[in-house]
Nucleic acid binder design. Sequence first.
RNA 1: GCUGUGAUGGUGUAGCGGUUAGCACGGUAGGUUGUGGUCCUGCCAGCCCGGGUUCAAGUCCCGGUCACGGCCCCA
Length: 439
Amino acid sequence: MVQRPRGTRDFTPEVMSRRLAFENLLESKALSHGFKRVQTPIFETLDLFTAKSGPGVVKQLYAFQDKSDRALTLRPELTAPVMRMVSEEMRGSPKPLRLSYFGQCFRYEESKKGRYREFFQYGAELIGANGPFAEAEVVALAINMLDGCGLEDYEVRIGHVGVLRDILTGLGLSQEGEPEAPVASAMRLLDKGDWDGLSELFVKNGIDSSATQSLRSLSELDGGIETLESAREILTTMGVPLESLDELKQLLTALESLAPTPPSLKVNLCVARGLDYYTGMVFEVNVAELGGEGQVLGGGSYRLLHLFGLEDLDPSCGFGLGFDRVLLALEAQAERAGRSEVVPGETPATTTLMLPFRIDTNAVLSIVKELRDAGNNVELDLRGKNIGKSLDWASKNGFSNVVIVGPQDLENGQCSVKNLVSGEQSVVGLDSSSISNVL
RNA sequence: GCUGUGAUGGUGUAGCGGUUAGCACGGUAGGUUGUGGUCCUGCCAGCCCGGGUUCAAGUCCCGGUCACGGCCCCA
């Protein structure tokens, strides 16, 4: 038996109707915020991703040589391809750009629930604008998407790498160094909450251990916008500039107007997202019930466009949404609530079966066409069974109506339209508009 | 990268050394010369793959594959 490669999935019609509904929902949210969809190739040159993430990523890529020995790879994410596309196709487009994207990405990793080798990402990038309002627009889109699909019990964590960087350089840590700059090491340790490791790093760099305490109290601030006042006090005693913190406050204030209040919004200045191209606001969304793979969305302000000779567009801001993970969370939540509809609007439109019974099928074909042209979803019966079996089949296949046309109907110029849900049946004229009226 | 659990028709399961491998759902063909979601009958379809132990392996052992967990990492 030939089976699907590890970490990949097939999507049956039932599953696809849900996925399409979800994609459409995200798409309409993106459009309502002015983000226009783009698409880039499934594979790219390898150096696009090594330039962004370093040579270490290669072991996680589906990288290969083509027949002309070009080094290529299936894309592991979509931000870099979109940046590349902007530099190749949209240099002359008026800025800022609001772009959205959706597609599959590939990573060579151990697969498990919520983590696949082929996975789908929906994302948005706001390019060529920065500052609190740009960031608020991006975060607002993210929250509006999650809220719009009915996700519950998610936690949004917002931090600011700029604040963190100011603190750490203020303490005297260097932004240069091999193999890893002390500032970057500290941010990584902070993100993980490794306080012992952080103390050790500070001692090694001749920094007073009281700094660890201050950072710790900063990280323990737990709450929304109101915690910024406490943060301000801590930063002031540490002698750290407050500009970044003020920006974060403007962002959060704007967000309160632009998006619904999430189930949980936490300001956490120690969120660093582990990636060194983030420069300002960073945010991520977690759903606890997904367990270890609970992060469903992440993003922030970053500097990447300088890699393509577009320094003036840095920093930009964006996020990626884990399409599969949000769907898993929605499914889990729907099941817990005993709800059959997982994604709003996933229920398919009503469909009608045209059932010619012991007559020449040709007699109904033009009616089928007219019904379709009028916007109805119509399927022509191809099985030619008796009526009982046909109704049974239609019912099992989710049809909402059956149009029965038998020899007597043909003679009288009429037909029976049966509603399979209510069981009611009416006799109407054998023409598309009469039938349409009762569907 | 480390580690745990599991794998029987399309789906869900029973069997745990010797059975014609059972059941339910499903699919399909009928019972019915124009009315289903109730019933009856026939048929379709399975022990993940490769080694080993044994007179005998779906069942025990080893390896692989795949899935699902817990760390690490990331998204």
